[in-house]
Nucleic acid binder design. Structure first.
Lengths: 337, 337
DNA sequence: CTGAAAGCGCTTACAG
DNA sequence: CTGAAAGCGCTTACAG
């Protein structure tokens, strides 16, 4: 297919390229007659703008970018979608950039800044670690969503998240209050300052408060996938054969665990209770529905967008904590003994 | 953050911009000494290429694009991922473009062609309808994956898919052979020539062959989501209260249905059998695991990439049918009466 | 309201 | 092996 340029269109319409550009960009200073003439040609020859040229030539209209790390993460996808909804109609347009779970979100920011001078970022599923210096270097407002960045020391970063530690503690409390004493804990890397470390701490808080000993070596770290969780049941039983509950750090982990338990002939929740985290749609559709901590996706989305807008208008960064909700679920029961 | 251009780098390194460009693109005709000098500057100032400029200036290296419609579609995501793996190391680089389920895949193709002159496309989750003319107009090789495009009349399109009609017929056969006679059918739009129409036909083939009457008005069309399927259970029971099985056209539909049945106090499969389609990971992890038709994702991925490469080298388009596998699953049982 | 011209940051022949 | 120059397809002041 022949690709026409605006020069071609200009020639065919008998006007200057600058005029075609104006029409294409909906500028008001074009006569109705000229506009129509140009649009006729555009439609007739199926003209498509070259966006490289468009963005190269400083399309200096400021915009914000939402960077989502993890394409398969239902939870993050939900939040991103709601952010887009919140951003509808705002003066600054928002765009979403999905990157691989393995990719570097800070590199993605930098590239987006180099290519299009993004005026602000929302990072979804990002980590707060040493690579954060990129945020400082970029110097544009940045909101970490679902992660606490208050300890990052960045003067241009806000964040919005639930209290992961308190939420996990509350979940563990529920298990312990139901009489469970031998609980396996399954999750992500518990080192550092990120949400998995916080969740781990929350679980420990509860165990400690209930006077239950927990050998840190019993902790099972796993990938965030159904398969990863399924396979770690092996390791869990290697360490303790007598567990009556498994606390996990995500809904997909919980689902992987339930399936693995069933395949071992154990019933959930009659024999073993299982808990998830995030409050994804699937957790509610699963059988048994998964007891989980529901993160307020709509609120997180709304707050993130609001925080970014605040900063774009010169406001100071803020760190917001939103409330989580404990979801009952059918996956937990009283301990049998 | 200050963004440097290759002119800045050239100046700091005391060389010409063309030399910097050569270094950046790994051209062999640069002295080791110069290369080092340039790279030092690049690293020191954190230079990032502007990709708009790069792509604008005909980076005429040919490449292929995989367009995935539907970001939340696990099945398509799986296939896309495997395509990328298959394409590793091939002469033509492949890139993946995810678009919204509501977006127009043919527009996406056109834009990608306008921006970067993609040399070929694989369309995942595309539809074969009148908008296909875009494929003809573009004139570059195109592979429809998971859809049959043999009837499209396009001379530059291949396709690879299972026999959706036969697969659905086989699934319905299984239900009927287990004694079910009152089966609800739940799926996508059955008009036209796409996979859902084929699946519908397959279900009808089986019913007809078994001498079972089916009132077309009983068919329930629904959205492809857990929620959509959940809600259509209402409509199913409005039409027939005595059904003992539900055949659906996707695994998520099946899951939505199972949950809805449970919430009505019906057991799956003891009271009602339910079947899915696609063979997604979740279908196997669900409880009960979903009886489904497993599409050979690896093979579809491999074949699609191979077909595109064939065409890129001047080969004729071909339409390939790959074999599906019936997955047992725990979600179906003998009809009680 | 419209046009001619400069320039965005790169790459790629073309000379040397 | 290296540099000067043209040009990719747009947009945006600057004139008229």
């Amino acid at each position: 297919m022949e690709i026409y340029t605006i020069r071609d269109v200009a020639r065919k319409a008998g006007v200057a390229v600058s005029t075609v550009s104006r029409v294409l960009n909906g500028r008001p200073d074009v006569s109705e007659e000229t506009r129509k003439k140009v649009m006729d040609v555009v439609e007739k020859c199926g003209f498509v703008q070259n966006r490289n040229a468009r963005f190269l030539k400083h399309a200096k209209e400021p915009f914000a970018a939402i960077i989502v790390r993890g394409r398969r993460n239902m939870f993050l996808n939900d939040v991103a979608e709601q952010m887009i909804e919140c951003a509808q109609g705002l003066k600054t347009p928002f765009l979403v950039k999905y990157i691989d779970e393995e990719a570097d979100e800070f590199e993605a920011m930098r590239q987006l800044y180099a290519d299009r001078r993004a005026g602000g970022f929302i990072l979804l599923g990002s980590r707060v670690d040493e690579r954060c210096e990129m945020v400082r270097a970029l110097g544009v407002p940045c909101v970490f969503a679902t992660v606490d960045a208050s300890g990052s020391g960045l003067e241009n970063a806000s964040s919005v998240c639930i209290d992961d530690r308190a939420a996990t503690r509350a979940m563990m409390d529920r298990l312990l209050d139901k009489g469970h004493t031998r609980v396996a804990v399954l999750g992500g890397c518990r080192e550092g300052d990120d949400i998995f470390a916080h969740r781990y701490q929350g679980a420990m808080d509860s165990l400690r408060a209930h006077g239950i000993d927990y050998d840190p070596d019993e902790y099972v770290q796993t990938r965030f996938s159904l398969k990863g969780a399924y396979e770690s049941i092996e390791r869990i039983f290697e360490k303790r054969q007598d567990i009556t509950a498994v606390l996990t750090m995500s809904d997909s982990m919980a689902i992987g665990v339930v399936r693995a338990l069933r395949d071992r002939g154990l019933r959930v929740p009659q024999d073993v209770s299982v808990t998830g985290f995030d409050g994804t749609e699937m957790a509610g559709y699963y059988v048994p529905s998964i007891a989980t901590v529901s993160q307020p996706t709509a609120e997180i989305a709304r707050e993130s967008v609001a925080l970014l807008c605040e900063m774009l208008e010169g406001g100071e960064p803020r760190h917001v904590t939103v409330d989580f909700t404990m979801m009952e679920g059918e996956s937990i029961a009283e301990a049998i003994r």
